[in-house]
Design a protein around this nucleic acid. Structure first.
Lengths: 237, 237
DNA sequence: GGATTGACGATTGTCAACAATTCGGCCCAC
DNA sequence: GTGGGCCGAATTGTTGACAATCGTCAATCC
């Protein structure tokens, strides 16, 4: 996201970088990376000094980053006890799926009337790429590309506010307790639904696109819950 | 929200209060109050030391609060220049109305199937109260009660995640540049729509409730935009 | 033996001091 | 008169130090 080039325009980038980037922002990005990559597990405690020492900054910068991360829903602050990576239980997971369905539905409705032919092609290409990655040995790369497919749809709506809220929610949903199951195989059968979404968008039918998005999220929720139940059955056979 | 009583259980409240409340949280709440009350205008600079001195706390607590407020979208941090109350231009206002329509629509769809008779009565009472306040001299109290009406609907869905996102968005929308026009008279004619919303919810028809909510937000947007255009006409007569 | 208390180490909460940057005014040269 | 550069006040960025709190562990008492 913040890269430099070695050619002439790097000076301008560097200036913008210095003007906009504080230590706190960098610390914040690093902690987000650690959380999303799984380096910090849900529920784990994150110690101020450990982060500060590791990144070579003072504790204040880390503390400020923690405040921002709490507001973003990624960590939980307990006074005098420390900060912990948030865990998301089943109740909250249900709530999040409902909200995500609403946001995705809105994205489909907004995008369908204004999508361009180029954008349809781009989405079709993404779905084709996903198809290839369905094999078990490449599944580690299926998951991020799937995220990118949905992110691009929201991004294409041109609604920046929706995109910010959507991304924040997706980030939080990475903390689902049973996330591992999702990545492991629960989503394998969803590519047909991706094709249905692209088809609905290509037809420029707002309601059809909205319905396709909503149904896809709902299916994802069901797959997740089924996988969770299979892992921790409530009644033994 | 955090009140004490003078009877026996105050000790327990006080303990919980101390355990959960940091100076930063209090500072944050105070700044939010100042922004929402209009004490701090959109675009105004907020100086660290001024807040710290006024509240009798160190700058660190204020800086941490700033970070959280930036993540919440209420202020904008410019490195080495200061923090400013965010202003929301016309573009972003459009985006926010679209997202709010989506959230309200979702709230209507979620609430309709599960609303209780008591809840319907409560909403009806709120609409009746609003009716009385339509007179110009009481309009200052119409606005907060209108907010409460919509907030209660979202709250009644039981979806906490939706409620958090909704409230954050509503807070941000207080920073609309032409907000004064809204409060002054643009929303006067909307109580019929409120009745329509309650009627749709009472009928337990999810799609009807969703449509009523969406239409209401859309009307609000149109009223706001019309008022804004009237205040700053793009073409002179 | 079990429970309570006290002290200690570790961690967080808050603050004040120092460094770096920005912005405005002033002077001076042209 | 105008533009450039210098200087100083004001503000923010960052750090380290000190105080308060929590959890643990061992010693003590019943």
């Amino acid at each position: 996201m913040t890269e430099f080039r070695s050619n002439g325009d790097s000076a301008q980038s560097a200036i913008g970088f210095l003007r906009s980037t504080s230590l706190t922002s960098l610390v914040q990005e690093e902690i987000v990376r650690m959380i999303l990559s799984g380096e910090l597990d849900a529920g784990a405690q994150v110690k101020e000094f450990a982060i500060a020492d590791r990144l070579g900054v003072g504790r204040s910068s880390v503390r400020e980053a923690f405040r921002a991360l709490e507001e973003a829903g990624l960590v939980r602050l307990e006074k005098n006890r420390g900060v912990f990576v948030r865990e998301i239980g089943d109740n909250e997971a249900e709530e999040m799926y409902a909200v995500r369905a609403g946001l995705d539905e809105l994205a489909g409705r907004l995008l369908a009337p204004r999508i361009t032919a180029d954008q349809v092609d781009e989405l079709k290409r993404l779905v084709d790429d996903l198809e290839v990655l369905l094999a078990p040995e490449t599944f580690a790369t299926y998951f991020p590309l799937n995220l990118r497919f949905h992110d691009r749809i929201v991004e294409m709506t041109g609604n920046g506010k929706l995109l910010v809220m959507y991304r924040r929610l997706i980030n939080e949903m990475h903390l689902l307790r049973r996330r591992g199951l999702l990545r492991g195989g629960g989503l394998l059968v969803s590519n047909d639904e991706h094709r249905a979404i692209v088809a609905a968008l290509a037809s420029r039918d707002a309601e059809a696109a909205a319905a396709a998005m909503r149904d896809h999220v709902r299916s994802g929720r069901n797959r997740m819950m089924a996988a969770a139940d299979a892992a921790t059955p409530r009644t033994a056979a």
